[in-house]
Amino acid sequence: MSKKRINYSLRLAKNIERKMLCETFRCLSEFRLVETYKYIGFGSYYFVDFALFHKALNICSMLSIEKGAMNKDLLPRFESNRPYKCIDLRPGQSSEILPQLNWNEHSIVWLDYDGDLIPSVLADIKTFCTKATTESILVITVKADPGNDLEEDDDGNKLDRLTRLKLTIGEGKIPFQIPVVVDGQKKMVPVANKHLDSWGTARVFREIINNEIIDTLENRNGVLREEMKVQYKQLFNFHYSDNTKMLTVGGIIYSQEQEPKVNKCSFERFPFIRFDENPYKIEVPYLTYRELRKLDSELPTNDIDSLKAVLPGVPEKDIKNYLDVYRYFPTFAEAEL
């Protein structure tokens, strides 16, 4: 039996996430043809998301914001890596480019930052929530690495996670209360340092992002008639880790009168959709190619026991994880192209 494991440098969880997003975007056909949406993202050199959304959804209006391309020497490399000519490349920071866009088109915006949750991320969220047309989608990915319990600042002071977060994002952006589960009961409590350990940082980040969206939309709604008021429905709350802990949150904005259409999208049919603070954790199963193939031939099924019988010795957890993600699971093979 082949012992060869999957190459984890290929960021499997991210790959799965991308396909889950893509499947969700397909539901937007309740509103209009998905191909009439504009996709805005950070394509980097690889443009993986752009390639997928173009191929799978036939989206042709595409804009890649690229900070690195501000360097004139690197610009040609970005341009030559564009997989399709419909991708418009805009050198610059998202916080400069997003406010300049005319937001007349319905958009799918995936701001896939590779860094932390910093004020400019919140500024981008504000721009989207102030300007984007309803029936648009916003997805935010940030690193949610809690760091060490205590870390030194430039002056040698030891700062805990909460203090560092306050310094980074500003005291006013720290949530007033966050939902936690105590003895099986959901409770709202003020944020404490202990809430930021492990995946706690991602949970608090989700609250900060959510608050920013709600706060901005409320301001926008102040001047709108009741039926035009803009609502936000969260669809994504992914936790995953290819190396570092990452958080993806996002959802759809729509006007009150479009609510029946939103319901018709039946987003809840996908097991990874999350409307609240409880995340969907993308867990990558540790299985060999041979095991994957064997499992595939038995799927779909919910009968774990029969699958365990097919793969004796394989941990149940990995089989279960695979059941959740198999439709989005990439198969890599070395190839010379």
């Binding site: 005291e171 720290i174 949530p175 007033f176 209360q177 609250e207 709600i214 706060d215 409320e218 102040g222």
Partner: peptide, 18 residues
């Protein structure tokens, strides 16, 4: 008008707290 929607928001409570 406006007060009720403010009171719903976590961000408002935070500002009130500060």
């Amino acid at each position: 008008k406006g007060i009720s929607s403010d009171f719903k928001k976590d961000a408002f409570k935070r500002r009130l707290e500060l």
